[in-house]
Amino acid sequence: MNGFFTKYKNKKDGVIRGYDISSTSVKIACIIIMLICLAIVLFSVFPIIWVFLASFKDIKEFNRNVTILPDVYDFSRLKATWNAFSFPKFYRNSLIMVLGCILTSVFFNGLLAYALAILKPKGHNVVFLLVMWSLLIPSSTNIIALFRNINILNLNGTFFPLWLAYGANAFYIVLFKEFFEGIPKELLEAGKLDGAGVMKIFTAIILPLSKPIIMVVAIFAVTAAWSDFLLPYLVLKGTNYETVMVKLFSFKDTPTDAVSVLRACLFAIIPPTIIFALFQRQITDGAAAGAVKG
């Protein structure tokens, strides 16, 4: 038990400091806090575990049995739904969508931030203000006019309007801008003295230094693009390019049995979960660090 508390001696943040831990009431408080945190994590994770469990049920069992656990763990049921929906198709489309969104997120927002943070052409303050204001504009109220414009340009049924939408993101621009402003001026000056042009400085000096922030933006873009549904639904519905989310959103209008819907949800959760498992450190750090400044 004492081992449990020795670690508290080196506690670096929070209200309870290392020197508090000798008191019994603080020790009890630490244990209670530990238990609360465990309960919170259980609450956070349980719904996701439940989808996995419920996916094994058949329709009658799901609708009538008062149980959390399925009677049998039969993977062939999952496979049947997988095949019936031809899920690989939706995965492929979502992947195309996500990869394109990463590129546009990094490229367009990075370029604009480069101009705002380093080149600072005349009038850049106005541009920055316009960009910041767009954070305050309710993006989804634009959807009617935006959808109309997409149709006028005949871009419906393609990924282009979806990819490019990620190229105009004020939040990513702020992230890039903050980062670029932290790059030592001497490096840029040295580049200029070597006769490097504006684009050369961007590609040869700034981009290689910006990998951490590119990673953060890419991760944000992956999560956002994988989950995005409203514009993809309007633009891709009824084409061969429907993404996983378009399919999930369509279930609200189609008579599909509840278990198939749940299994589709499970399939939709698996890829981000794998990515999260691989990069949890970067993702949680990025989420914290990224938004502090924004």
């Binding site: 959808f147 109309r148 149709n151 419906n156 049924g157 639904y233 519905k237 009824g238 084409t239 209008d253």
Partner: peptide, 11 residues
Amino acid sequence: DTFMPMVEAKT
């Protein structure tokens, strides 16, 4: 509520 977007999108 799905039909009209599809008409507009010609899908």
